[in-house]
Design a protein around this nucleic acid. Structure first.
Lengths: 111, 111
DNA sequence: AGTCTACATGTAGGCTGTCTATATGTAGGT
DNA sequence: ACCTACATATAGACAGCCTACATGTAGACT
């Protein structure tokens, strides 16, 4: 997966993965792999800064926990983040529709 | 349309628009607007450098023409570019499939 | 003559988000 | 002792899209 392609869609992915339940960073990375059938291998250097950014904006909140002697920072969606996720989803639909209409133009243009 | 979302998809858009016939930069911008139903307003500062980059790579070739007293640089797909367009199209399908599977996970996960 | 808009190309520099590489540390298995 | 999995974090590189600006022709309108 071309890294540049993820640009601008990372937020949607992270918020989406946190919709059902709060997760810590490492678990988020695993969830992304799982849900994408292994296609998404997002490096920690991408995820951790992104999560902090989303918290700074106010879409996420976090708290520390210790599980099995290991420290985790667990992130959860705020109300604002949940609202944002809806926006991200509709933006995604519009985005794919727009790009798709250009990419598929050839197939239909000469009908 | 969020600018960042276009990242990594500009090449596909430009190659796609040039598939049917050679066009100059200004006409390419108009074609993108037209095909996207007005949603894509790609600025000249994006398109012109991108076209040069694609030519440098070898996906496009260009030649100058004068029409109605105005100079145009007309771009056309090379064989390599035509091949690349096929790759871009399949990459697009995979990309939307992967992101979509993550974004839609909530709807199906609890079925 | 002057102004405006559409047509047409181009560059410099900023911004921002993703990536690579690295650092640090715990737990558990061999 | 070593390795792997778990877990978080930051610095700096990189790339590409954007804003803003520069330049110029043609045609319409005042």
């Amino acid at each position: 997966m071309n890294p540049d392609a993820l640009r601008g869609h990372m937020d949607a992915l992270l918020l989406s993965v946190l919709e059902r339940e709060p997760l810590h960073g490492y678990a988020i990375i695993e969830a992304l792999q799982e849900r994408s059938g292994g296609a998404l291998n997002v490096p920690t250097g991408t995820v951790y800064p992104a999560l902090r950014r989303l918290e700074r904006i106010g879409y996420l909140s976090s708290e520390w926990a210790t599980v099995g002697g290991r420290k985790r920072r667990t992130y959860r969606l705020t109300d604002s983040g949940r609202k944002q996720l809806q926006g991200e989803r509709s933006a995604w639909r519009e985005f794919t529709s727009v790009i798709g209409s250009v990419l598929r133009a050839e197939a239909t243009a000469l009908r």
